[in-house]
Amino acid sequence: MKNIVVVGAGQAGASLVARLRAKGFDGAITLLGEEPVPPYQRPPLSKGYLLGDMALERLFLRPESFYADQGIDLRMDARVRAIDRAAKTVVLEGETLPYDALALTTGSAPRRLPASIGGDLPGVHTVRGLADVDAMAEDFRPGARVVIVGGGYIGLEAAAVAAKRGLDVTVLEMAPRILARVAAPETAEAIHTLHAAHGVRILTETALAQIDGTDRVTGVTLADDSQLPADFVIVGIGIAPATDLAEAAGLTLDNGIATDAQGRSSDPAIWAAGDCASFPWQGGRLRLESVQNAIDQAECVADNMLGACCDYVPMPWFWSDQYDMKLQIAGLNMGYDRVVVRQAQARSHWYFKGDALISVDALGDPRAYMVGKRMIEQGMTPDANALADPATDLKALLRA
């Protein structure tokens, strides 16, 4: 194998090409990214960068010089038009690149509101890439009124930043509570309370009917015909895997680009990793949207492209910054049937499925997070009553 092309210059793509070189691959590597900047961190975009606490250069995963030093042909502003599987080429504007192996790390794209309800009006923003955040930055002025559509982590992080900047913030959530798909009611209630303490209004069981305005957003109309004034709107209603290229190329899709356990798509010369890829897990398929997964899965795929033949086994962890409280999550809470609440110096929620500990939400409690993560990785089942007792030494449970 002489030539590897990687499409998508986000966290997964950057991790994959670095791993190829670290593992001794000495052939040609081309990394194609649509944005005009080198690969960068996304989580700080809606936090430190939007707050003005982080300069652009600090977002970059590595200095731009790293890629040249490693013999990696990083191409920015490079939009891939098509994949020709028969010819084993990637088609760009005015150029065709051959590959021996191709990796798709195309990530995901924010879900948008339809134009029919004003989703394309100036002043309607999404939070995904650098251009999105740069576009909304000038709207983040003290006293401005922002309506945030969606009570998931993306919307709530934007709400926290807006509140810290002195904006008037309202969050709309259709479900009976925030974080309904991703967290237990206990975690949702704690974060709801935190936002309320910072002056954020969260309206649950509230549907958006229309974004108002002619040349720019002036407000929103709700499903009950009530109206809220707004100087701008942030849409945080989730993301979808970026699979257009894969679909056009005829690759199998299943909640993303379907891969085998080693990251290979339905075409043995094409691999996938990160937000865009789904992989076998516990008898079904799983797609993870996290920095940790993008790194770990991409490195596993790089190893397998070089012949390692190792299955990807996720050890998920996530985090979300809410004001000065860091929510840290270990494991996956899918299928949980009870939650044990531990209130010591800080609060943590421990998810059980039957007798097995499967996930932990640690709200400003790094010790609970670290202990819970190790327990899950080691398959340990702590005593629920001991967990709930604030006098219990968590590290002692880990040693038990």
Rank of each mutant, 00 (worst) to 15 (best):
R216F: 12
G10T: 04
I154S: 06
D260I: 09
A184P: 08
R165E: 04
A240V: 14
L74C: 09
I72M: 03
A294I: 01
F60K: 05
A330T: 09
K326I: 12
V5R: 10
E173L: 02
G250F: 02
L194W: 14
A272C: 01
W317R: 01
D224Y: 13
F232I: 06
V301H: 02
V133N: 00
A82F: 06
T187S: 03
D267R: 03
G129S: 15
D231E: 13
A248E: 10
A14F: 09
D254F: 07
H192E: 14
A163M: 10
L20I: 04
V217C: 11
A400D: 15
E189F: 06
R177W: 04
P314T: 10
L357Y: 03
A302N: 00
T392M: 06
P114L: 09
I202V: 12
L74Q: 02
Y312A: 02
L208I: 09
S266Q: 11
A294V: 00
F232V: 07
V133Q: 01
L104T: 06
V340Y: 06
L61K: 00
T187W: 01
A175G: 05
L251F: 07
T96F: 02
S290G: 13
A163P: 00
Y99Q: 08
A209W: 03
E64G: 09
G119V: 09
D120L: 12
R85T: 13
A78P: 07
K2C: 06
L387R: 01
L104H: 13
G119Q: 11
G10F: 01
A294K: 00
L306Y: 11
D26L: 13
R19C: 12
R81Y: 06
F66V: 05
L74D: 06
R216H: 13
A175R: 09
L222P: 01
L102N: 02
M334T: 15
A230C: 09
G118L: 00
R21M: 04
L20Q: 10
D260M: 10
G364H: 08
G238M: 08
M305G: 00
L179D: 03
P280Q: 11
V235S: 03
A258I: 05
A400R: 15
R75A: 01
A368F: 03
A362W: 02
L245W: 05
R338H: 15
T206C: 14
M54R: 14
V37N: 12
D337T: 13
G119M: 12
V6P: 03
P176G: 15
G151S: 04
D365A: 13
L363M: 14
G94E: 00
D225F: 13
V171P: 02
F279Q: 00
L156W: 00
L61Y: 13
A175T: 09
T106F: 02
P390R: 14
V291W: 14
D365W: 00
I154V: 14
T204F: 11
D296G: 07
M370I: 15
D224L: 12
V127D: 01
A396R: 15
R85L: 05
I257Y: 00
R287N: 10
D100Y: 07
A248L: 12
R347T: 15
A190D: 07
T243Y: 05
I117M: 15
L59P: 02
A103C: 05
L332D: 04
S226F: 02
I72A: 04
A294M: 01
D132K: 01
D134C: 05
G71Q: 09
P38R: 08
D389L: 08
F60M: 07
D296L: 04
F66W: 11
M380N: 11
E247A: 15
